[in-house]
Amino acid sequence: MKIYLGTGGYSNEDWIGLLYPPGTKKTDFLSVYSQHFNATELNSSFYAIPGLKAFEGMAKRVESRTRFAVKLHQVFTHTRNYTDDDVARMLQSPEPLREAGLMGPYLAQFPYSFHRTAENRRYLWELAQRLEGHEVAVELRHGSWDKPEVREGFRETGLIWVSPDYPPLGGMPEPQLHASGHVAYLRLHGRNRETWWEGSSAAERHDYRYTEAELAYWADQIAALDPGEVEEVWVLFNNTTQGHALANIETLRPLLEARGLDPARPGQGDRLL
């Protein structure tokens, strides 16, 4: 199995001194990031779909070292009022990444309020049809979706089930790694139960550093996947506050190696933290 390790976004100024040397320009963040990690989630596309030139610049900066999961714009997952033009732009703009062999799945991150109702099931099926021919990983935060029959539906439709790690608050999917096809996708958000609902910002919500024991659980889950069925495993840390994600990736790497897996680095970047 090919393992892709990275973080949700890379434009974190509090990583200066941790990942980015002091004095690094923000425009150079991605170039430095790509020396250490072979995957990233592009968060900016949730707020505004970048144009072709922006994606061309990303492809040049990573020098074929890092693949991108591109988050769908919020009109697809939150307001759910997308137009034909939105679909066209979402599919066409990342073309430079595809041409460079750097395009991973699209990521559809639905909110907790998106329950498993007949209307929402129909919406998700229709969205899958509009994006047919492209890999789409779907994170469903409400626990009503966390059922074997939903994952079987994903398998039949070609959608990638996102396995999330959340604080143990109830009402959300259980922390279990599932694969609905040849790609397994794990998103680790941290387990800060005090700030998950009450936090005033995403930085507060994701302010959590996993312990080695907590990450050993996920290493076991990854090692238990059937390599005859699963070809790729994407592991993305969203606990980016204070560099927690950077430290946790460095903790996870040897845990995976100890289980016979190869979380290879994209280049010769030094060990972090």
Rank of each mutant, 00 (worst) to 15 (best):
P105A: 05
S93K: 12
A216C: 05
E41M: 06
Y112K: 02
E41F: 10
L177I: 13
V75P: 08
W145T: 09
F29R: 06
V230K: 10
Y210H: 10
E250G: 05
R265Y: 06
H189G: 01
P105C: 09
L52E: 13
H206C: 13
D270E: 13
H182Q: 13
Y208Q: 07
V162T: 08
Y10I: 03
H36N: 07
F29H: 06
Y10P: 12
H178Q: 10
T77M: 08
F37W: 12
M172V: 15
E149Y: 08
R191Q: 12
T27Q: 15
N81S: 14
G267S: 13
D146W: 09
G104E: 04
V233G: 06
W15D: 03
H178N: 13
N12S: 12
P227V: 04
S180E: 07
A258G: 10
P105Y: 10
W218K: 03
M90L: 14
Q176V: 15
E135N: 13
E132K: 15
R155D: 09
P22Q: 07
Q35T: 02
V75C: 14
G260M: 11
Y166N: 03
N12H: 09
P111D: 00
L127D: 05
V32T: 08
D84K: 14
L124I: 07
G170H: 12
V150K: 04
L91Q: 09
R98I: 11
E231Y: 04
A184P: 13
G23V: 08
Y208L: 08
E63L: 06
G228L: 02
Y20G: 01
A118F: 03
D28P: 03
Y20A: 01
G269H: 07
D262L: 09
R130A: 14
G57V: 06
L5Q: 11
L140N: 06
H189S: 02
H142I: 01
G199E: 00
G8E: 01
H244G: 03
Q129G: 09
N38C: 06
L30N: 10
A59E: 07
E212K: 10
T24M: 09
Q221L: 00
W218M: 01
A179G: 09
P168W: 05
H178G: 01
R80S: 00
F76G: 01
L169I: 15
K60M: 08
E135S: 15
S113I: 04
P175V: 00
W161T: 02
R259G: 07
E63C: 05
Y208R: 09
R253K: 14
A54V: 14
A48C: 04
W15R: 00
Y112H: 04
L188G: 00
W234Q: 03
R61A: 15
W196R: 02
Q176W: 12
Q74M: 14
